[in-house]
Design a protein around this nucleic acid. Structure first.
Lengths: 210, 210
DNA sequence: GTAATAAACGGAGGCGCCTCCGTTTTAGTG
DNA sequence: CACTAAAACGGAGGCGCCTCCGTTTATTAC
């Protein structure tokens, strides 16, 4: 479990090599990310950075030391959220039948995107600027979705002639709908509809294999 | 020369209908645009708006009344510059042989773009956001270029199998070159080279018509 | 000319951005 | 434990953004 290389380990020229932060620095950093996530969710991507620092209980200087620009902070928050969304896939897979897990995850995905409406503009700018971020995130999402789909296909509860990118496109159609009041309800219905389409013609009737 | 419709003229429901400004307002507006053009040229698109107001000799409130956002101001300055660039085409056509006019105008065009390097990012954002602006401006430029080309073709000094959009693409290749110190010299050479290509196979050798 | 009114002015004020640097805290060392 | 160097902190300060509203000015009507 001890993954620190304090003295005995050799330096790894790892791409993601980050020397361990000092304990207080790590604490503050975590507090900042948490506060930023809340602030961005509440006020959109141009929430006040000073307010974020205040909520995190640190000085504005500390915020800027950790995140030199607003974009850095937005990126970290965004990565963290996508990561947690994808982690939820594993969690759902453990506690539900594959098709139910898939449906619930798709619903979460759409809901998550919905919360990002306000950030749409700046997030798109960020994703255009930072192509690494874009490919990392879409790769991560596709992977999570693929695993859910494969499990459901293996289980025979959905048809086998679909793949993750097809479904991702279909979900795109759902969340790009204009935002009315009943957006949430409709998206729920549409995800459910998509799910029925996926179940149609599935092998489940011939259930037998383990 | 009197183009004001003070009392006798009827109201035109023109799309660009703008009620005439009060004299002082028009004066201030002009001063602001002029100051802004200078400031953007000097400091890029995020020049200080307060400084612009100061240079124009007006209060910051006046600036914001005329141009509610920075983008409004950038747009007006940009439109004015493109307009003046295109007007230069007519001017050149009056005082030079068609091929010389064409070459000189292309040179001005490339020089102009060069001054916009600093604004590239924000200008691109603006053009993406505001598609009307984009089509207006590129239409205006294409028209000016087409007239120069047609005159030179008619005169027999350049070949006839090119059109404005071809040449615009070629110019694009020139100004998108990486910016080194000798950028200006090289672009001059390249424009000259392009011009030679346009002259090649022209009818001018068979000069005879008046 | 004067009066009335709509239009325009302008800058103070409140807030946010970001930098800079004196102060504090941590992680090592003996 | 004390000591030190390096790392991190934090907030004052300077500047820019933008709004709001009391004051000034151009225009119109008489």
């Amino acid at each position: 479990m001890a993954s620190q290389p304090p003295a005995t380990a050799k330096d790894k020229p790892d791409a993601t090599a980050a020397k361990p932060l000092r304990a207080d620095a790590q604490r503050n950093r975590d507090a900042l990310v948490k506060a930023a996530a809340a602030a961005f969710a509440m006020h959109g991507a141009d929430a006040s950075l000073e307010e974020i620092a205040r909520q995190a209980g640190v000085g504005i200087g500390t915020l800027y030391r950790h995140f030199p620009t607003r974009e850095h902070l937005v990126e970290v928050v965004y990565r963290r959220e996508v990561e947690s969304l994808c982690a939820a896939a594993d969690e759902l897979a453990l506690h539900h039948p594959p098709d139910v897990a898939l449906e619930q995850w798709m619903q979460r995905f759409v809901d998550y995107i919905a919360t990002k409406r306000g950030l749409a503009t700046s997030l798109r700018t960020l994703l255009n600027t930072n192509s690494t971020l874009f490919s990392d995130m879409s790769g991560r999402v596709t992977l999570a979705l693929r695993q859910l789909i494969e499990a459901a296909v293996a289980d025979g509860s959905i048809r086998s002639d679909v793949d993750a990118s097809d479904v991702l496109h279909a979900l795109g159609g759902i969340y790009s709908a204009p935002d009315t009041d009943d957006w949430r309800d409709r998206s729920r219905r549409l995800v459910s509809l998509l799910m029925d389409g996926l179940r149609f013609g599935a092998a489940k009737s011939a259930k037998g294999g383990g």
